[in-house]
């Protein structure tokens, strides 16, 4: 149930701009339709039709009455709708020269803390925007709002990942400006978000040293689809059995193109390299 307006739908997704909670939007899981009440809503449906050929099994051309079947050789990607919307998102980000990052990890890797520190430290240098994805609650978005950065919370309800359509609806509430940074914090889940392109410029997987250093081979899809791997909470290395080199070795087996950063959002250690990367990527857009 939506905690703001009280509407109840089991598969509902809620998109809320923090500071403007009355004007939130609902959509139904995996649907073209927007489920909305008195709030604004566009009725634009995005259908993409695959290229298909058909042949009819009926040899009788004398019309109607006989039962017949049509074979449609569709050859269509099941995720084509998401991929199409992701391409549109990507085009929008490119046109605005926005560096859009999809941050993925297990719950508890320190994504939000890393983001808070980044937004605070780079506050004077960049305009930043945040989309927060969680199944429930606005806790993370409220933390981000403390940094004075515009933030939209997506509550996915039962869905275990963000998709391109949710992100599109979220950034429409953000009024993103040219040459800014957009951080999309995905739902904490190292499996499902791997399949869904959001149109991001780069995907950043975050792992903390309190997790196992063999995570890349346990959850290879996420490491395979990411561009950057941030190893967070390195201030805790003396207290845990985690070998950074072993993690890197495993991760590179899955994805030889991964680049790494070692950070502590708590102490600030290693954050400068991450910031330098952000600057370079933003300049190269």
């Amino acid at each position: 149930m939506c905690s703001t307006c009280g509407c109840g739908h089991s598969d509902i997704i809620t998109i809320t701009r923090i500071g403007d909670e009355d004007n939130h939007e609902h959509m139904i899981l995996n649907s073209n339709r927007n489920y909305s009440h008195q709030h604004h809503h566009e009725g634009v449906h995005d259908h993409a039709h695959g290229h298909s050929h058909e042949k009819t099994m009926v040899s009788d051309h004398h019309h109607a009455v006989q039962p017949h079947q049509t074979i449609v050789d569709l050859e269509m990607d099941i995720l084509h709708k998401n991929d199409l919307l992701a391409s549109r998102n990507r085009g929008y980000f490119e046109a605005l020269q926005v560096l859009a990052l999809n941050l993925v990890s297990s719950p508890g890797s320190g994504k939000t803390s890393l983001l808070e520190r980044t937004l605070t430290d780079l506050g004077a240098e960049f305009n930043s925007f945040v989309i927060e994805g969680d199944q429930q609650s606005s806790n993370d978005a409220n933390r981000i709002a403390e940094t004075q950065v515009p933030v939209v919370q997506i509550n996915t309800g039962k869905a275990c990942h963000l998709d391109a359509q949710m992100v599109q609806k979220a950034y429409k509430q953000l009024s993103i400006v040219n040459q800014s940074l957009l951080f999309i914090e995905n739902v904490g889940n190292l499996v499902c978000p791997a399949m869904f392109d959001l149109g991001e410029t780069a995907r950043v997987v975050i792992i903390s040293v309190t997790e196992g250093d063999d995570k890349p081979v346990k959850y290879p899809d996420m490491f395979h689809s990411s561009d950057i791997c941030i190893i967070n909470k390195i201030d805790l290395l003396p207290y845990v059995q985690f070998e950074v080199e072993k993690l890197k070795e495993y991760a590179l087996r899955v994805n030889p193109d991964l680049s790494f950063f070692e950070t502590s959002a708590t102490t600030g250690q290693g954050m400068d390299n991450w910031y330098e990367w952000l600057r370079t990527q933003q300049q190269n857009l």
Binding site: N30, I78, K81
Partner: peptide, 14 residues
């Protein structure tokens, strides 16, 4: 459980 999303996508296309 992204498999459900995949299934629902198939149903929608179909």
């Amino acid at each position: 459980m992204h498999e459900l999303t995949i299934v629902l996508n198939i149903f929608e296309i179909a």
